[in-house]
Design a protein around this nucleic acid. Structure first.
Lengths: 220, 220
DNA sequence: TTCGTATCCTACACGGTGTTCAAACTTACT
DNA sequence: AGTAAGTTTGAACACCGTGTAGGATACGAA
């Protein structure tokens, strides 16, 4: 698409139609050849960025051997944080305040990207599932606890994954996201000087959740 | 102050000076009697809201016995999520996209509230610290890893708390925040139908981190 | 009363926003 | 060359945002 590299400079609330046009050397009206309305543009933009992130995370995953889910999770986690920090604008676009009246009918594209991103974690958890301690899967989840479209996607890609493993994946996602969101929005710096160290500790703890004791050292 | 209950209706990006004025039956110009500029108003608003949150969390903490940190953490976690869901506008204001050119010199008020909120977790961790498994505190943190102003606050309120315990508190904060942020911004609903259940499982897991095996049941 | 202060309003200037539209331009096909 | 489709421009429109100035109204103090 044409809407690939607009957000680089713009923050998040700065995503004005005119700013985008300005940034790519065009006038505002010209964009209406591609998108009917501003919201359509932003929605497409979000989907685009989200798709890039999903691909990036999966790439990071494949840099580690498939039989070492802990290392994979660590790589994905680090890539996630790095992306968020290097592209705060995109991060805010995807995970930040929803544009007024946008988020609701976000279209299928962004949701597909989100499923793809979740799929990265699902792959890791699927690989580690046999080794994960039972105590983690306290609550017996049922497929009825999840969105039908989502279970369809999961069932297709991971036929033999139990619902509890999916729930664990979502929880892992939350743990990755939490510290990153706090750091990106400046809620960690006033306390700790090196958020990377804290995040790394969280990642190592997470790998232990996967039943994997890999004290891998990575440059902070 | 007068700026107590303005944000109730307004979203987050909707925090325009005029919208606030409109909501309290005044005109825009009138607000300039209280604040020199719009940013000043928003900054004060953020500090106000953040302070309310900190107080609410500490209240939630004291509803459980002081010798049961796990129960306290669970109560605080549930209160945090409930607040975020019931007041998404305030949540976005405090933890969402920073207003353009605001977040940087956020003033001392909001930061003080943030310290107060962290203090709630610090109290819990401090109470539980003797029982927490050593494996959690992998990395030996030093006071030099933290912001001087923050260590001053910590050292004053919790003289005998080691740096690693502070780091653990921040990590717990991240875990609480992660799932909540995802849910509030609508990134969980497309997958799981009942985010509360997932969050509760995370909380129970967290209490185990505190070395406390309390399978407390709470209404979702 | 008269003064001063504080609060609120109306009205305005100025800029940025999304959107539309006719006209110019580019490109490619016949 | 001629034509048609697609793309871009520039100007316009209506709207909403901040910030400012001047004029009302209240109230307490001298």
């Amino acid at each position: 698409m044409i809407a690939l590299k607009h957000m680089a400079a713009g923050g998040a609330a700065t995503v004005s139609l005119r700013a985008i046009a300005r940034e790519m050397g065009m006038t505002a009206g010209a964009l209406y050849s591609y998108y009917d309305t501003r919201d359509d543009l932003v929605i497409a933009l979000i989907a685009d960025v989200y798709g890039q992130l999903a691909e990036l995370l999966d790439m990071a995953r494949t840099t580690r051997p498939a039989d070492d889910p802990g290392a994979q999770l660590l790589a994905v986690g680090l890539a996630y944080r790095q992306w968020a920090i290097n592209n705060t604008g995109e991060f805010q676009l995807v995970y930040g305040d929803p544009l007024p009246g946008c988020q609701a009918p976000e279209g299928a594209a962004a949701l597909a990207a989100e499923y793809r991103a979740c799929g990265v974690l699902l792959k890791i958890v699927a690989a580690a599932w046999p080794a994960v301690e039972r105590s983690q899967a306290i609550d017996d989840y049922r497929w009825s606890d999840f969105d039908p479209a989502f279970v369809a996607m999961v069932g297709e890609s991971f036929p033999e994954l139990p619902p509890s493993a999916v729930a664990l994946s979502l929880r892992i996602w939350g743990r990755l996201h939490g510290l990153i969101a706090l750091e990106v929005y400046g809620h960690l710096r006033p306390q700790i000087l090196d958020p990377a160290k804290l995040y790394h500790a969280e990642l190592v703890d997470l790998t232990r959740t996967l039943g994997h004791a890999s004290p891998i050292r990575s440059s902070a």
